[in-house]
Structure formats: structure tokens, C-alpha cells
């Protein structure tokens, strides 16, 4: 136990934890995006999926709490490391320059905090419905066992939500920032976990960066698709 605490207290241990939680968060991001893509399939597919998730009950809460813990750990250690790193270089150079550090790698704390702010906004927007109560309260009526059944209309909420240009811009900005964050994080974590190889590492870096931007563009496509009418409420019926 003592050795575990010592491990986590060290810079290398903290970095290890950052990488590990980073992997989990990246997996979540991938899952989230694949769910999002159901929007392209249509209202029923999206809402079925949402209903299925809601139906998980306690399991959903376990996943949510786990995710929260992972998030919190990532953030806590991220900030802790940042403070430590800032303290390690109390005076900066009058003439600063870099050689090969990427912009993404130099701005992880900044991009991380922007993503955090975005997540808070996103939760308030679509999970808690604080920002756009009208859209949040939309319902879809489906036939179930021959009876009409009202369920949460996630599809409608998203479509309605992204008819607001402010949100489109905020989401688009946040996704670019997320892309930056991941474009360093996704390959850097291999180094932190101790995997580096002259033949494979260049590919890991390429794939990591590529994947980061695929994810960002994937997310970004949704508000844009809605805004430009590629995703629209079917039949314009009760979603309007």
C-alpha cells in the first residue's frame, strides 16, 4: 500500500495515472461518438438508444460514477502536475523558443480546462436541461404494445439545440480544442506507459493524431449537420 501511495505521489506515477485515466476517457469519447452517429440514422434509432441507456438503471449510475471518478482523477492529477511543473520553472526566459514541441503538447492544461468547461456546459445543456429547458422537455410518442408511449426525445432535443448558433459555435470550438488535447494525449500516453519503439512509435504518433482529429471532426459534424439541415426532425411533426 505504501509503495502504491509513493508511486502515485511521484511524477512518473502521476503521469501513469494521467495516461491510464486518459485511455479510459478516450474509450468513453469513442463510445459517445458512436452513439452520436445514431443521429444520422434518425429519430427512432437515437431515441431507442437513449431509452436503452436510461433503462440500465443502477448499472448506468455505476458507469456514470466510475466515469466521474476517472474524470476527477484525470483533472486532479492534471492540475497537480501543472502546479508542480510551474513551480519547477519559477522564472521564464526573456527570449523563449522551442524546437520540436507541438503546440498541442504545450497547451494540454489549457485545452484540458476548456474541455472541462465544455463538459460542464454540455451536461447542463443536454443531460440536465438547464440551458434549454424547452428542447429538453421534448417528447416522442411511440407505439408500444399497441399503446401510445411517451419517451424523452433526445433526437429532437439535439436538433432543436443546434438551431441555436451560439451553441453551434461553442460546440464547434470545444471540439477543435478536444481534438488538440487528444492529438497529443492519444500517442503521448504510450510513452508514459513505457512503450516506445523506433519502428512503431512513429506510427503510434500518426495514428494517435489521426484518430484525435477523426473524433473531433466526427463530433463536430453533428452540430454542423443540424445547422445546415442534413439532420432534420422527421416529418417536422411533434418535434417542431
Amino acid at each position: 500500500m505504501q509503495s502504491l501511495l509513493r508511486f502515485l505521489g511521484s511524477t512518473v506515477g502521476a503521469k501513469f495515472l494521467m495516461a491510464l485515466t486518459g485511455v479510459l476517457l478516450a474509450l468513453f469519447v469513442v463510445g459517445h461518438l458512436s452513439g452520436n452517429f445514431l443521429l444520422y440514422k434518425g429519430q427512432d434509432a437515437m431515441n431507442d438508444y437513449a431509452e436503452m441507456l436510461q433503462g440500465l438503471g443502477p448499472a448506468l449510475w455505476i458507469v456514470r460514477l466510475g466515469l466521474l471518478a476517472v474524470f476527477a482523477t484525470h483533472i486532479y492529477y492534471g492540475i497537480r502536475l501543472k502546479r508542480r511543473n510551474a513551480a519547477a520553472r519559477p522564472v521564464n526566459y526573456a527570449h523563449e523558443d522551442t524546437i520540436q514541441a507541438s503546440f498541442a503538447s504545450r497547451s494540454m492544461i489549457l485545452t484540458g480546462l476548456v474541455v472541462l468547461a465544455f463538459v460542464a456546459m454540455h451536461l447542463a445543456h443536454f443531460t440536465l436541461g438547464w440551458l434549454d429547458a424547452e428542447a429538453y422537455d421534448l417528447k416522442q410518442t411511440v407505439q408500444r404494445d399497441g399503446q401510445p408511449f411517451e419517451r424523452h426525445d433526445v433526437f429532437g432535443m439535439v436538433v432543436a439545440g443546434f438551431h441555436n448558433d451560439v451553441f453551434v459555435i461553442l460546440y464547434a470550438f470545444a471540439m477543435v480544442v478536444l481534438g488538440l488535447h487528444l492529438s497529443h494525449g492519444l500517442h503521448s500516453l504510450f510513452q508514459t506507459l513505457g512503450f516506445r519503439h523506433p519502428a512503431y512509435t512513429p506510427w503510434i504518433e500518426r495514428i494517435g493524431r489521426g484518430l484525435a482529429w477523426v473524433l473531433a471532426v466526427g463530433f463536430l459534424s453533428i452540430p454542423l449537420a443540424v445547422r445546415f439541415g442534413f439532420i432534420a426532425a422527421a416529418g417536422g411533426g411533434d418535434a417542431g
Partner: peptide, 28 residues
């Protein structure tokens, strides 16, 4: 000293051009 954040400026600045592969080795 601060923590490594895998920017590899060290490797670029090293007058003996030592590879950051060493850091992965130490991490592991």
C-alpha cells in the same frame, strides 16, 4: 524538477542527442 509531459524538447536540445526512448524505459 518538474514532470515529463512528453514534449521532447529535451531530446532536441541535448548536445549528445540522447533519445527519449530512455524515458519510456524508465517509466516502464
Amino acid at each position: 524538477f518538474g514532470a515529463c509531459t512528453n514534449q521532447y524538447e529535451c531530446e532536441a536540445a541535448c548536445p549528445k542527442e540522447i533519445s527519449v526512448t530512455s524515458i519510456a524505459m524508465l517509466n516502464r
